[in-house]
Design a protein around this nucleic acid. Structure first.
Lengths: 339, 339
DNA sequence: ATGAAAGCGCTAACAG
DNA sequence: CTGTTAGCGCTTTCAT
């Protein structure tokens, strides 16, 4: 399929000017006579010219595209990632920003050593100018690999170890405070939490915000159980919680899926939500709205965060920004029926 | 950020050979003395050479990447698409095939006139060698635009009007037969269906397969209500069905979400599933497993279909295949508790 | 304001 | 089996 379209040369001949002039018009460089601009534009229309990205990239040393890498461990990554609308919002935000620049992201999954290597190679070969990385786990070797290769990189979420890499993140601590304060404000006296694995920085912050808020209200050692972000793990954690602390009247789950699991167990054990036990989730994912009852939850401005991520990367690629930046976003409480 | 790495020239100098020889080694072309191959490999390692994609693309007239376009109308495309794990499976399948070739897809959403134009432009500029298109709606103008631009294209799902474009698709008719036969085999005597809008070819086929199977068993005018693929529409359709035909003992919904909606209504009206009314869905999406009761449903081999789609495109790009191909895949019944 | 010319880094004939 | 050579299509000084 050698679709060889017209080149600058063809347009130049058609318009009776030089390649350089056509190039200037195409790239909107000033210092071109308006009359000639028209001439060239018509020639472009007539020939159906479309600039060749590869040629342009070769000379400008810029691919004009960025990589969007979903990084983590495990193989069913795609299925899991896409099942979560969170990632859809990330994509939406990134696309929204990139679109205005005529750019599209190259999608990559880096779930294995080999996949990571491939991703880094792709960047080193100039396939993209930089990387937008969404890590599933906190301890992700990819950012370091990217940094070693000198690839401009911006992360979604703070890495577990401080690294000189730009990133955007939610203020998880503040989000957990919001949740805890809401539970307290409704009059809950015995509040527990289903936290996520603590190797994830966000999980740590959410637990911290929760504990500090409760401590501020005089509740010092709230029951804590661990889940793994799944519905089943939330249900199990809730079961343990109920067994050990039958008097619980409020639960903060570190994500919506676990909150949903908790709700199922609560209803099966005859507790009314929110009258007997109030439940607050985190993320405002799709299940939050379809859950019974609909979940009160903490929402991140994911699209704005993702757009900012793309913007930071662009600045880094252009060389406008040389120091890594770290942007923290404010969460928002979405009140529904569960609390 | 002008990360300018070593070039072929540098490696050639380091190894004491010509650029051409290094190129041959890099591209695995035979006819190179094993000794020299080693020499070159070491030089590559020492210099940390990575071939420049743009330069290669320029001369080979091949970007070495494909576009993965989610096409449809409406604006919340990303959110909707990602809410359904179906798309995740498509991505998984595509990535699985592409990965072995060191390729990554460029992700694009074409939900508006402008977005479609941008997508086509990107392809025309050689940003990708071809397009993998997943249409949300049946009547999608994108395939035609792509064809007009001479872009190699493969669709997921048959377009509503016959077009000379390659595509992969499920045998929806056979899938509906599977569902209907299962309901019949369980002893259901009064079976209804909640179909999807008929401007979608798949919906038409599913209805056809359902009707023909029932007719074969002597049931000639089964109750049919329309839904729009959403949970709410499924619930509403079920409500109507129950009002008009109280004796119903089996329901085939054209997708899982509608089946879930139907289940909710059935339970609310005191019908036991599957004892009083058996329910079969379609797609084996995430809700199928979490629905109460878990849904018996029809599964498409999405990953295999997506991989095949990528393979067809590659053949088309390489010029191996010139005629549009149409591949139909066999569905599989997944039996859970709802029927 | 416009044109001429020099590459960007690579592959692919074509010689040898 | 290896090297020489000629571009791929574009941007960008540098003259004019």
């Amino acid at each position: 399929m050698s679709r060889r379209g017209p080149t600058l040369e063809d347009v130049a001949r058609e318009a009776g000017v030089s390649r350089a002039t056509v190039s200037r018009v195409v790239n909107g460089v000033r210092n071109v006579d308006p009359g000639i601009q028209d001439l060239v534009r018509h020639a472009i229309d007539r020939t159906g010219y479309a600039p060749n990205r590869a040629a342009r990239a070769l000379v400008t040393r810029r691919a004009g595209s960025v990589a969007l890498i979903v990084s983590g461990v495990g193989d069913a990554v795609a299925a899991r990632v896409f099942a979560d609308p969170f990632f859809g919002r990330v994509v939406s935000g990134v696309l929204g920003y990139l679109r205005a620049r005529g750019t599209h992201p190259v999608l990559m999954f880096a779930e294995s050593e080999q996949a990571r290597e491939q991703a880094v190679d792709y960047l080193r070969q100039g396939g993209a100018d930089g990387a937008l990385v969404v890590s599933i786990h906190g301890a992700d070797p990819l950012p370091q690999l990217l940094a070693d290769a000198g690839v401009p990189t911006v992360l979604f979420a703070r890495p577990d170890r401080p690294q000189p890499v730009s990133h955007v993140d939610l203020d998880h601590y503040a989000g957990a405070r919001l949740a805890a304060e809401h539970l307290l404000a409704r009059g809950c006296r015995s509040i527990a939490t289903i936290r996520a694995p603590l190797d994830i920085p966000a999980a740590l912050d959410r637990l911290g915000g929760f504990r500090d808020t409760l401590a501020g209200a005089g509740q010092h050692h709230p029951p804590v159980e661990e889940g793994t972000f799944t519905l089943a793990s939330g249900a199990e954690a809730m079961t343990r919680l109920l067994a050990d602390h039958p008097g619980i009247d409020g639960v903060f789950a570190a994500n919506d899926l676990m909150a949903q699991g908790a709700c199922q167990v609560l209803r099966e054990q005859g507790r009314r939500i929110p009258q007997d036990v109030a439940v607050v989730g985190f993320d405002d994912s799709a299940v939050a709205a379809t859950c019974r009852p609909p979940l009160t939850t903490v929402r991140q401005p994911v699209e704005r965060m993702a757009a900012t991520m793309a913007e930071l990367l662009e600045e880094q690629v252009r060389g406008v920004r040389t120091e890594p930046a770290s942007m923290l976003f404010a969460p928002e409480l979405v009140v529904r029926e569960s609390a």
